[in-house]
Each structure stands twice: as structure tokens, then as C-alpha cells.
């Protein structure tokens, strides 16, 4: 056995001639370049689509956050209105029902104290709103 087993009888020349034609079809490199270009485009397109979907998700999350913030603010405003209406009503009732029973000299002081208490309560409420604390908490 040798390294060139078909040598020197013409057969190896014929085999070499026959096998030498084994090659990719013309334009192999161009097809490969096109394929590689397509490969590179696909990741780019995928990245763009991914970014677009991420932007949509971020936008939706922002809308949801704003919606929740608005709802919370409306709840706070309603609570504030309700909370304010109570003392106003109470003071009005006290003024209406009690002033007549009190000595005339005490009525202005009681009214002043009631309005001071109401102002203090509204001020506290305002501070809580500013700080984001629960309005109706004790």
C-alpha cells in the first residue's frame, strides 16, 4: 500500500479530472454574501421589533400609572370634600342650635373657636394631601 494507490495507470488521472469538477456552483460567494446580509438584517429587524414592543409596553405602563394616580387623587378629593363637609355642617348646626342658648357674649367666641378648629383641620388635611398620607387616617 502506498500514499497514491491509484497512481500511474491512468485511472488516477481520470479520477482527478472527474473529481476536480466537484465545486460549488458559480456565484457561491455572492449567494453567501446575500445570505449573510440577510442574517444580519434579521437580528436588526428583530431588535427593532423588540424595541417597538418595549416602547408600547412602557407607554401602556405609564398610562396605567397615570390612571391610578388620577383615581387616587379623585378619591382623595372626594374624601376631602366629605371630610370638610362634616365639620362645616357640625359647626353650622352648633351655631344654629346652640347660639341661642348661650349668653350673647359667648357666641362670637364659640363661632371663632369653631372656625379656627375647622381651619386647623383643613390645614392638616392639606398637609396630608401634600405628603401623600391617608386623608382619613386617625
Amino acid at each position: 500500500m502506498n500514499d497514491k494507490p491509484l497512481a500511474a495507470d491512468g485511472l488516477d488521472r481520470r479520477l482527478a479530472r472527474l473529481m476536480s469538477t466537484l465545486d460549488a456552483a458559480p456565484g457561491f460567494e455572492a449567494r453567501l454574501a446575500a445570505r449573510l446580509a440577510a442574517e444580519r438584517r434579521i437580528p436588526d429587524a428583530a431588535a427593532r421589533e423588540h424595541a417597538r414592543e418595549a416602547a408600547i409596553r412602557a407607554r401602556a405602563a405609564e398610562v396605567e400609572r397615570l390612571r391610578r394616580a388620577l383615581r387616587a387623587r379623585l378619591v382623595l378629593m372626594a374624601a376631602t370634600a366629605a371630610g370638610a363637609a362634616g365639620p362645616v355642617w357640625l359647626v353650622a348646626r352648633l351655631l344654629a342650635d346652640g347660639l341661642a342658648a348661650l349668653p350673647a357674649s359667648a357666641a362670637p367666641w364659640l363661632a371663632l373657636a369653631s372656625f379656627a378648629a375647622l381651619a386647623a383641620w383643613i390645614g392638616t388635611l392639606h398637609l396630608r394631601l401634600e405628603r401623600g398620607e391617608p386623608v382619613l387616617a386617625a
Binding site: L11, L18, M19
Partner: peptide, 22 residues
């Protein structure tokens, strides 16, 4: 000759193809 190569067992055919290609 081509048909004769096609009748070779797979391992021999592979060796012949690659040896003689270049």
C-alpha cells in the same frame, strides 16, 4: 468511471472523492 465510484462502499467513496478532488 463515475458510476463505478458510485458503487464503492461509502467510506471508500468518500476517501476517493476527497483525495482526488484536489
Amino acid at each position: 468511471l463515475w458510476r463505478a465510484v458510485g458503487t464503492l462502499p461509502e467510506t471508500q467513496r468518500q476517501a476517493v472523492i476527497l483525495y482526488y478532488q484536489d
